[in-house]
Write a protein that binds this DNA or RNA. Sequence first.
DNA 1: ACTGCCATGTAACTAGTTACATGATTGG
DNA 2: CCAATCATGTAACTAGTTACATGGCAGT
Lengths: 193, 193
Amino acid sequence: MAQEEVPSQDPALPATAYAVLGLLSFGQELTGYDLRKWAMNMRYFYWSPAQSQIYLELRRLLQHDLVEVQVEEQKSRPDKRLYRITEAGLKVFREWLDHAPVGPPLLKHSVALRLFFGHQTDHARLREVLTEYRDWAVEQTTGLTELRTELDQRLPYPALVATWGSAYFAAEITAIDAVLADLDRMDREEEAD
Amino acid sequence: MAQEEVPSQDPALPATAYAVLGLLSFGQELTGYDLRKWAMNMRYFYWSPAQSQIYLELRRLLQHDLVEVQVEEQKSRPDKRLYRITEAGLKVFREWLDHAPVGPPLLKHSVALRLFFGHQTDHARLREVLTEYRDWAVEQTTGLTELRTELDQRLPYPALVATWGSAYFAAEITAIDAVLADLDRMDREEEAD
DNA sequence: ACTGCCATGTAACTAGTTACATGATTGG
DNA sequence: CCAATCATGTAACTAGTTACATGGCAGT
């Protein structure tokens, strides 16, 4: 390591670090374990990183003095490490929130990918895959509606995102139904020649 | 390395490898360069990996004999490597298409993430970010409609996905408008106290 | 004259994953 | 009594990124 000259002007953190920082920006002291649970509530629109990744980001943020930790000793189990955002952390987070370039969402839709290659399989199997995805999407809407009622008024912005998420899954369900109908149409057209 | 005993029964390839294999399953011989262009057409629903990653996957697929290559020598520029899917490749691809478990889409929506943390910024900035995203989404629908007319009849399944994609972006635009309206409402409620 | 396309590849890095290890406490 | 939860962390790996290098040829 070189001798420190500048106290890291622009840490250029990965998105996950900002997600962690953002969760801490609500003002509560949280453990890595707590953060993982919160991150799971965000899975509807932001892929939850693995548990080990969260602990890694926390250590990185600590090194940059963007969070501070208070260790609570526990008998015969790992010490509880309560993280809190620092002034510097809040500053960096707000800077990101206000000035980071608006990027497109990163999407890897494996079901859409499989439909794209539909010429290599049959409609029966395609319908199975699509239906399974549809069922999953229905479950997600249920989960989101529950989450939203849980959030409402207390956390207005997360509630807004939950509403958005519901709309997203509703749209997916409608789109799947349209695709399913199109597959039927294709079958009928094939039959009638 | 151990001495080869089994000729790699289950290669367990990453998703990107299947995407490449799938593109080759249309029957054309393609270069890495061609594949990158095709992958860019899929960016609406499946994140385009970096160019270097595509070349890497091709080399891996070659090692597994899932593709074969025909080298065309070029004077004073890199040789053109035309890849073609093999019988084994087609088999592995179909196996994946038919039997891979249906996974949820991987989504990292940085705009939704920023809205989630709206308490740390102001509505003016939030509106800017949302509007910029909205504009981008509008562009995407335009691109997709063009692509769909280009695909229609010739490639029915990609056309289906393109339609789905249009619906997705349309839903995003509607959702953003709803969020924008909600922000207005929040402003009015704040004002009236 | 210059920009963009064709075409491949390497090097160094970062983000992320899965699997493992530990072990008491709480709830049904 | 058994399963889940709490709570952190390491090790080995894979997927993916950016930046660089090369250099002719086609179109405006």
